[in-house]
Nucleic acid binder design. Structure first.
Length: 271
DNA sequence: AAGATTACCTGAAGGC
DNA sequence: TGCCTTCAGGTAATCT
């Protein structure tokens, strides 16, 4: 499930390979998750990709005419670059043919569960969408991040998952950051000290940076733009380890449902 | 207004 | 083998 480090990885790779390329043809195999649905091909063919950037968990393809294509991968979306025309398989939705890139002839979008979408937006729309999200956790200081989290009146896990509060954190990194900061995910923000929140903010930044360096976490079917799995799974300390001993103290890690999500914590280390 | 619940969708895994 | 249920979680909408 792509969160900030995974989307950042894909975005960097796509930007390296596709910026400056022009879309020469678009084939749609499943169009229900496209906006606009009927004219998608019309508004994308001929567009030159100026650059590709990330905002929250969105990949943003900026086009030469000021419009942009935003991609949300949700749970199972893939954006994979190919050097020749790929064979189309069951869950492939859109194939872009490109010219002008030495390392890419095609970009393939697929999504097993059909939660993700591709949406064409104007410049103004893009800035509206961006305003809907909270700050990028890696673009502000830990102090600012802590202050921002501290204004929530909810609990830690819900706050970290709330994209309007902080952009880009999902279930995996919320659990990891709480464990590293020795804070229980169910703890209310109001019960956290300023030092707790600063430690949490620092750990959020650290774990995101460390995961980006490993090209993300492949807990399920995530792969990067080259179709390669991320390397951070084995470095996770708490997520997915319910019932196993805590790496710090050996206590059995608990897994509960909180904020509607599987939530992992060590009952001893995280108070 | 926080927080729980549901819907969207498919495949993997587990139970019988 | 094969059928059924449960689980995975990003996000918006809906309810309490």
């Amino acid at each position: 499930m792509p969160e900030l480090p995974e989307v950042e990885t894909i975005t960097r790779q796509l930007n390296d390979k596709l910026s400056g390329a022009t879309i020469t043809n678009v084939e749609v195999f499943f169009g229900n998750r496209l906006q606009p649905q009927k004219t998608f091909t019309k508004v994308t063919v001929g567009r030159k990709i100026v650059n590709i950037k990330r905002r929250a968990k969105l990949v943003v393809f900026c086009f030469d005419n000021g419009s942009a294509m935003i991609a949300h991968l949700k749970m199972t979306g893939h954006l994979i670059v190919h050097q020749q025309k790929p064979t189309i398989e069951k869950h492939d939705h859109v194939l872009f043919e490109l010219t002008g890139s030495p390392s890419a002839s095609h970009l393939l979008w697929s999504d097993i569960r059909k939660f993700g979408y591709l949406k064409i937006v104007s410049k103004g729309d893009l800035s509206d969408i961006s305003k809907h999200y909270g700050p990028e956790p890696l673009e502000i200081s830990a102090q600012e991040l802590a202050k921002h989290i501290g204004t929530s009146r909810s609990n830690l896990k819900s706050t970290l998952l709330n994209q309007k509060r902080v952009a880009g954190i999902g279930n995996i990194y919320a659990d990891e950051a709480c464990f590293r900061a020795r804070l229980r995910p169910t703890k209310s923000i109001a019960a956290c000290s300023a030092r707790d929140l600063l430690r949490l903010a620092e750990e959020i930044q650290k774990v995101l940076h460390e995961s980006i360096a490993q090209k993300g976490t492949s807990a399920n079917n995530y792969v990067d733009a080259n179709g390669t799995r991320g390397g951070f799974l084995s470095l996770l300390r708490i997520y997915g380890r319910g019932g196993q001993p805590c790496v710090q103290c050996g206590t059995t890690i608990k897994k509960i449902v909180h904020a509607g999500r599987g939530t992992h914590f060590c009952p001893e280390c995280q108070k």
